[in-house]
């Protein structure tokens, strides 16, 4: 998978690059408007992470350039401007998703994977991880052809984990993913614990391996290694 990161903030750009570029992913970066235009006019990417505020131009113009040239690359806008107008404008101009800074890298990866999956359907709408087969349209999970009964939150959690496989996902990131604005409620971590416990149990009972590992009390890691 080929990803272009257009972001002027060096610290953030590097973290994103490091986080995304493993498991066969190739990341390229552009710190400003000029180099971004140069890259997108030369190469195609599976997904472009686009910061709206660039030192020498507006990120919206990059988006405009892509659409004018019928570029099929997926675009995920990352912006500090948490304004509805920007969000609406961005999505109307053809961006695939909009993520507000600050965000968790795991959330970014999950959104990015969702865009890439949507873009490259290839006639199949299922996501396969070892013995797990997930039908993304029907939102169904099967293990060895046995249907798993998951709640909405458990399903979201599983997808989130698979998108971030082999990564430690913090409890804060999970809370924000599952509850969004309601994430500041007190007992969320208890809920995460019980959701994960249930998910694990269901996976195990259906004959899957135990992929969910607790990571030093900070979060969880979904891995088959």
């Amino acid at each position: 998978m080929k990803i272009l990161i257009i972001e002027d903030e060096k610290g953030l750009r590097e973290s994103v690059e490091n986080y995304l570029s493993d498991g066969g992913n190739l990341c390229e970066t552009a710190p400003d408007y000029q180099s971004a235009i140069a890259k997108v006019s030369l190469y195609n990417y599976d997904c472009i992470l686009l910061d709206i505020t660039l030192p020498d131009g507006n990120g919206f113009n990059v988006l405009k350039y892509l659409k004018e040239n019928n570029n099929p690359d997926g675009v995920l806008i990352i912006s500090a401007k948490n304004s509805l107008d920007d969000k609406v404008a961005g999505l109307e101009m053809g961006a695939d998703d909009y993520l507000v800074k600050p965000f968790h890298l795991s959330e970014l990866k999950a959104r990015l994977m969702a865009i890439v999956r949507r873009k490259s359907f290839n006639g199949s709408n299922s996501l396969i991880f070892n013995e797990l087969v997930i039908d993304l349209l029907a939102k169904e999970v099967r293990i060895n052809n046995v249907l798993l009964k998951l709640t909405r939150k458990e399903y979201a959690l599983l997808l989130y984990f698979i998108a971030n496989k082999n990564k430690v996902v913090s409890k804060n990131a999970i809370a924000e993913h599952l509850w969004g604005d309601g994430a500041d409620m007190a007992d969320n971590f208890d809920f995460i614990y019980s959701h994960i416990k249930n998910l694990r149990k269901k996976l195990e009972e259906a004959g899957a391996k135990d992929y969910i590992k607790a990571a030093y009390g900070m979060g969880y890691k979904f891995t088959d290694q």
Binding site: G11, S15, N82, S170
Partner: peptide
């Protein structure tokens, strides 16, 4: 908002990388 959120975003992403 931009100036403040960007460093917070950096902290956040560095923490995610650190773990």
């Amino acid at each position: 908002s931009h100036e403040l959120l960007t460093p917070i975003a950096v902290i956040n992403s560095k923490l995610d990388s650190l773990i």
